[in-house]
Computed example of a mutant assay.
Amino acid sequence: MYKAKINYQRASFLTSAPDIKALPADEGIEVAFAGRSNAGKSSALNTLTRQNSLARTSKTPGRTQLINTFGLDAERRLIDLPGYGFAKVPLAVKEKWQKSLAEYLMKRDSLKGLVVLMDIRHPLKDLDQDLISWAVGSDLPVLVLLTKADKLGPGARKKVVLEVREAALAFMGDVTVQAFSSLNKLGLPELEQVLDLWFGVAEQPDSATTN
């Protein structure tokens, strides 16, 4: 099993920002987590950092309205981007979130990788595909994390992972696909290995497993 070279448990909250002007200086390396409002993004960040409440989780999707920054060390940060695509959010609020998200993705030079989280039962919605297309167009590596993988049996889970990997070929970029479960830690070593690579402390990982 892969042993992370960065101690993600050391992650600490730095700031919540309404836009990129309020973020820490644009230097070092950032890896951003993005996904639909019910994709389990906060749970994944808490699992990665072994902290129960680093990123707030809620039974009401769409509550992450700010760009949340967590420091790993002096040069490396995790970014929790506003959730997108939740229908019950008022249109004006949704548009504000989308603007902050787009601004960060287009203008943040320290961004070196994007984790796109999707419920394994509902992968590759239109907004997910738009986000991946943008990242590929900007030569940014993408890890598609298929969350809540414990909701499917091994056979069904493997089938979805293979289908999404095949679909990802159409993006013609550096797109990796991995099943993940915050409940039983499935896919956590693979997530850590990709992040270590992006943070510059690991070599290129082998192809992710299909479980």
Rank of each mutant, 00 (worst) to 15 (best):
L183E: 12
Q129H: 02
Q65C: 07
F180S: 00
A179C: 03
L105G: 02
G40E: 01
L124S: 12
E166N: 09
F70L: 09
K21G: 07
D196W: 13
G40F: 06
K125A: 10
Q193N: 12
A156K: 13
A74R: 06
S133M: 11
G28P: 10
T209K: 11
V116Q: 01
A55D: 09
A156W: 00
A179Y: 08
L195D: 01
P154W: 01
D126F: 06
A149C: 05
A156V: 07
Q178I: 09
Q204A: 13
N46S: 06
V116C: 00
E30C: 04
A55P: 05
L127P: 06
K159S: 15
L14Y: 08
A168V: 08
L169C: 03
L23N: 06
K96Y: 15
F86C: 06
G113F: 10
A39S: 10
D150P: 02
M172Y: 14
S53H: 11
V201E: 09
Q193K: 13
K158A: 15
S37C: 05
A4Q: 05
A156H: 11
S43P: 05
S58D: 03
A208M: 11
A149S: 10
Q51F: 07
D80G: 02
M172H: 15
D80K: 01
L169K: 12
K125G: 04
G40D: 02
N68H: 14
Q51K: 02
L72W: 01
G85A: 08
M118G: 06
E75W: 00
D130E: 15
I29F: 09
A87R: 11
D109K: 15
A202W: 14
Q51G: 00
R63T: 11
Y84K: 07
W97N: 14
D119E: 12
V161K: 04
R165S: 07
G113S: 06
N68A: 05
S207T: 09
S138N: 13
S207A: 14
